[in-house]
Design a protein around this nucleic acid. Structure first.
Length: 226
DNA sequence: TGCCAGGCCGGGT
DNA sequence: ACCCGGCATGGC
């Protein structure tokens, strides 16, 4: 019993220390780089297993085509949409996923301009369930939308975060998404602002220091681990 | 050049 | 309940 408590207290301190170190090293990251809720959602889908730089090209194409809003994108044929988002990779798949999201929105929240804001105002658990029911939206994309488009206090678990937890020995290799997410959400205050910043800082650190094959751990502010 | 990027689905065991 | 192939472009 005391062992378990100590272990949890230790995890809490480790996760808090990581956050402080990263924030001190890199400063505030200012995520998400999207001007509207819809743009954030589009970005969350387009960046699935994809470099953000490629997503930006696709976003620019959508903006030029006046398709970076609910009504504009809904009016596009899926083939045309796929062509616009080509630079983001998996473009046929992602065009279907964007359409699946829009279809869900229009079917369940009407045709009006406020359908998206109504949708995003749902309680966390309801909204997460709804997002996960849409084909092409899995746990990470759903949580990204919850945090960065709906401003809900939800921790996003991405590949960088999983790698961080594994390499620091905080979870085993076979830990599930929910287990790893709970590690953060059971040990940190549920602050949307903090979760936003923490996730962004982890991505920043991962890009610079924590690649799958060639980790540059000796330079990492969080220390050397393999 | 091969490796990597802010995953998810569907079919097979 | 897991495991795996497929999906695809662009930067370094």
């Amino acid at each position: 019993m005391p062992r378990l408590k100590d272990k949890n207290q230790n995890t809490k301190k480790i996760l808090s220390d990581f956050y402080e170190k990263l924030l001190k090293t890199f400063g505030s990251q200012g995520w998400w780089p999207g001007r509207t809720n819809f743009e954030v959602i589009v970005g969350a889908i387009l960046t699935q297993n994809t470099n953000w730089g490629n997503v930006e090209r696709a976003i620019k194409n959508l903006k030029n085509a006046k398709a970076l809003n609910v009504q504009g994108m809904n009016a596009l044929e899926v083939e045309k949409l796929a062509e616009l988002i080509r630079p983001s990779g998996y473009f046929n798949l992602k065009a279907k996923r964007l359409k699946a999201f829009l279809n869900y929105l229009f079917d369940n929240y009407g045709e009006g301009r406020t359908n998206l804001s109504k949708f995003l105002k749902n309680p966390i658990e309801d909204l997460r369930r709804e997002l996960l029911s849409i084909n092409g939206i899995g746990p990470e994309t759903a949580d990204s939308i919850l945090l960065y488009a709906a401003y809900k206090p939800v921790f996003v678990l991405d590949a960088y975060t999983k790698r961080l937890l594994h390499r620091h020995g905080l979870v085993g290799e076979n830990a599930t998404y929910d287990e790893m997410q709970s590690l953060f959400m059971d040990n940190l205050n549920h602050s949307e602002k903090t979760f936003n910043e923490y996730h962004a800082l982890i991505v920043r650190t991962g890009k610079d220091f924590c690649r799958p094959k060639k980790p540059l751990c000796e330079e990492c502010p969080l220390g050397v681990f393999l």
